[in-house]
Design a protein around this nucleic acid. Sequence first.
RNA 1: GGGAGUGUGGUCUAAAUAGCGAGGAUACUCGGCUAACAUCCGAGAGGAUGAAGGUGCAAAUCCUUCCACUCCUACCA
Length: 861
Amino acid sequence: MFPKRFKHKDVQEKWIQYWKNNNTFQFELQRKGALFTIDTPPPFVSGTLHLGHVLNHSWIDFVARYHKMKGNNVYFPQGFDCHGLPVELAVEKNYGISKDNREQFLEKCVEWVEDNIRNMRSQFDDLAYSTDWNYTYRTMDDSYKYKVQKSLLFFYKRGWLYREKFPTHFCVNCETSVAKAEVGYQEEEGKLWYIKLPIAGHEEETVTIATTRPEMMESCVGVFVHPNDDRYYHLSAAEIKLPIAERIVRIRADKDVDMNFGTGVVYCCTYGDELDIRWKMKYDLDEIQLFTTDGRLNENSKYQGLTIEDAREKIVQDLKKMGLLERIETHEHSIIVHSERSSCRKPIEYLPVYQWFINIKDFTKEIIEAGESMEWYPEKHKQRLIDWAEGLDWNWVISRQRVFGTPIPFWYCEDCGEIIPANEDDLPLDPVQNDPPLKKCPHCKSEKTLPEKDVCDCWIDSSITPLAISKWLEDEEFFEKTYMKARVHRPQGYEIIRTWLFYTLFRCKKLTGKAPFAETMINGMVAGPDSRKMSKSFGNIVSPDEVMPEFGADAIRQWAAMGSLGDDYPFEYTWINIHTKQPISNEKIQKEKSQLPKDKFEKKYRRRYEQLTAASRFNTKVWNAYRFLFINSDKINISKIDYDSGELTSIETFFFSEFNQVVEKVSNYFNNYNWHEAFMLLRSFFWNELCDNYIEAIKYRFYSENEESQRLALAHALNLFYQMLKILSIIIPFISEEIHSIIFKKFTKLDSIYKIKWPEPYPQLDSNKVREGELAIKIIKNLRSLKSEHGIPLNQEIEKVVLISPNHKDDFTKEIIEDIKNTIRINQLQIEDKGDKTLISNSNVFKEKIEEINVIIYFFA
RNA sequence: GGGAGUGUGGUCUAAAUAGCGAGGAUACUCGGCUAACAUCCGAGAGGAUGAAGGUGCAAAUCCUUCCACUCCUACCA
């Protein structure tokens, strides 16, 4: 049976279940074919995939299916990135458990993550994502942590992992240090305070600084002016007596001072910003730490206990009382905030705290080399990696003062600070819960040890994904085959080139000696229809759940295929009025949305997704084409769809030959991950050639009295459409699988189209037949248009057609004359090599010239 | 503030080292046919390639400036 309609919902459910029950996507290491490993991006376990994931992972699935069909042994696992602040925040919020209650807290984190993964996995399945779930990983698993910790010991032994006190981006709200990659800048209206600082020795004389951070007065360790600033030339070696702190600091000249900002005088506080850090290092200034990790003033301050904000107000008041506050200005500036992987967005402070670092600055050259050694699709994004590597000025802070993460496997001696690394054999472990390998400090013999409570930065976890999936340290043969000797493909978005790709290149190269990737495929960001990023505040978010039920995965994958490599890709829709079907402007919609109640709004307006509409139509066309072939072949007994090239008609030979060319072009597009062009070609070939011309031209034989002709026409058509279906299955797997099971399974004896190889070109096609077939199709096309133009029903028989063909008369074989006659329904078809004036004497004759092949048509209606 | 990327009909995209009237697809509108089809046939509307200049016989393509979006980076205390 071939249902009349393609019901994507039922079909999807059926095949998801089937693929799962039959382990269709199972990977086998021993299978023949060169190993092609795909190091897929593990999505953060937010609980739901967004359209960006859909784009990215649809492409990845195309890659996997294509390379598999081409004969590679494709290793295609999919993992999940579990650790991170958002998990902790969610657990704190949803369960009300504090992270101080460590054990219970961690338990809940795992629970929350597992819930989320369940949902995300089923979203992947809904996409027909052909990953083998037996090889999935979660960064929170013990086996994963084992590898991460082992890699840390590896780095430690070589001196690339070290612990040091260093002013670090620190979020006093989340109480954690954050990587440079996790901070952002936010425009904010602030104030600029002008404060008079008395000159030491001449206290009646003052110099005025402008600052946005008056509360840092007590941590001031120097005052700076520009060396060329004449206004302050006389002060160049003077000293300042700091108010409140009552300390003396020197004035220095440094060209990093901006003369045009404020008064041209600036104080250096440890630590207000990155410049302060640089000056502190450069002039070996003192370090005065003023803040606690929870954002209060510490014992070094007279304002101990106050929050930073309160202290600011208090100090300003005090300065005012002392008569040292000159004036206050409002000031637009961007402040550095905790922005990524967190919704915190609170200001960042620089706190000198003990942190674990990985030396990365010394290896940027190697990283760039590893990047250069890969093929980039598209090439242009390579620059992002190089720019980032070359501009790097700090080492990588890898420790996070959080709970839910991979523990850093070290202890310290409380007395002398000696570091005690874990025994490799004891990994994975959590130093907070496990005892150190030594009873006594190897340095001072003290018995007091402290565990490292910090956990790793998430990028430490995710920067060894190629090793995790290849069973590094776990299964030597597997590792050799899927990493060392495999062609490893890395698909990802351009926004994480400087993080995920950068760190992976570095770590894997160092750990294995081999740069991890042979190639990388870069996708852009999915934007809203206004080509701005999807964001709540723009009201342009579309979730996959909104469109999947209506259109199905095969339509959404077509949308993904229409995007272009490396560029941003909007998800298009238009608001329309449901009743008039007229598009509504954005402004109007925003207005209506705010004015109408939700249910009324939804009754009146909805989104129209043009691209998905088109995709659905193509699905329907595909469905009906195969259905038509099925219905006809079902009437007679087709026992095989193999063919004998001698039995092919000219028209058939022509289309087989066209197909060969299409396969070659599509291969080329796929090899370059140019999904857009590949799919456009497939669609138009399928629709405009195979359906409109090929089927139309052989259709009459389906109804023929001649059983042999009927049988051959169907067998040949089924063969060609089967080859076509193989290719289509890369983009639209559900519908292809369904059609395969209905029509082709009995011929292929395969339970899934997934197991089929890429089509071989049809061999030994007779070039004469190709030429004749092409001629026939051109004539048929023109005759059909002619009929239509003159309002003659396509099924109405035409009395007579005369073709004048000076060049091709001999190509009109008996066979193609029959084809033309029967396809167009011509009673009498006459071929001449030259015209005859008597032909046009009849008044009911239309004349038409086909320039391309120099044929004149006389059409007797 | 700086850097990078992008900007082509409503939409997605093509135009090799610049070369004929900016092509295709899709969506939309109108008319017609229909013996698989929501198909098919025919027609229409819609862009002078973000803006302005410049160099060329010739520019979507090269140069300058500006604008918008995206990503990255930053020292304006």
